[in-house]
Design a protein around this nucleic acid. Sequence first.
DNA 1: TAGTTTGTTCAGAACTAACTAAACAAACTA
DNA 2: TAGTTTGTTTAGTTAGTTCTGAACAAACTA
Lengths: 175, 175
Amino acid sequence: MNSELVESREYFIQGLSRIANFWGLPKAMGALYAAIYLSPTPLALDTMCEQVGITKGAVSTNVRNLERLGMIYKKFKVGERKDYYIAETDFWKIVRGILKERGKNEFNLALKTVGESLEILNKAKLTKDEAELSEFYQVRMNEMKKFFDSIDNLVATVLALDELRLKTIKKVFGK
Amino acid sequence: MNSELVESREYFIQGLSRIANFWGLPKAMGALYAAIYLSPTPLALDTMCEQVGITKGAVSTNVRNLERLGMIYKKFKVGERKDYYIAETDFWKIVRGILKERGKNEFNLALKTVGESLEILNKAKLTKDEAELSEFYQVRMNEMKKFFDSIDNLVATVLALDELRLKTIKKVFGK
DNA sequence: TAGTTTGTTCAGAACTAACTAAACAAACTA
DNA sequence: TAGTTTGTTTAGTTAGTTCTGAACAAACTA
């Protein structure tokens, strides 16, 4: 194949590796998505090994994670035993998928943490001068709880809007 | 001090450590912010070492990073040589600060990457059947570029809205 | 049945990032 | 001046994560 086409593809793959890395994801994940995204035909495991330069063990696990996040899909070919993958090309959909997954885990963790800290406070039996500090803790913790609640609502709203098939955001931001 | 107050504070500190960790930040950063956030008076380095349980070297570097992100501020006391810190309590402001910092770095990296991959393609001299693949690459890369541009605009818009002192978002989401 | 193809799992290697501990610097104190 | 207090920097250690390489499993082929 033309060397500039290969060079361009490799540069792109390399670039998405770095971006993935920046966001705390495995480099291989970014690279694999890039390879699949740039392929006009569904990609198989052995081809990914070649293009990305990692072993099939790593491809296997990273591809599974990409699939779990809804960033790629299996595409079966009749009469073929290999698994082929294609890329999800709707990036807003990917973002929503990640929000859904992450939102459930991380924002709830945040809310739970603050809530439980508050509970410990409420059980406390206090002397007069401790009461003041407890009061301060409660105000601060409640403020943070309110913030996390807002984030939670914001995420839920974005997801709900999507489920109602309101394409407002896409229209506004030029999808 | 009352053991339940201490317990509650430690639980809270521990919790913010975990949250920081989840988001790919050093645990100590979350813990330090929690300690400062829960203190009714400005906190000094030695107190933070005690409350968080790390050495002053680690406190020094993590506190610097918290300050750079606008999450805490130095509070000088006259006639004292220690540095005292207080927490920024406006979480939306913190979010904007992080967007500003991160946005400049990471979204620009993304845009640059895709842009440069496209440039390599444009320089390529192609045979007839390579042209089709090149076309496909360009379509895909341009779609991704468009997406990153949208994100960039979205972030810029949020920041611009803030600088115009429009408090719409706060009002909507119940700050 | 033995052999091939394809994907998964897992122990350990290699790498990365954060922290410790100790040396250092700067500003003050006696 | 020597000694103290406070914060920073840095070399080396530790902990955590991702990847390799090899063994394994499952499904097909001859």
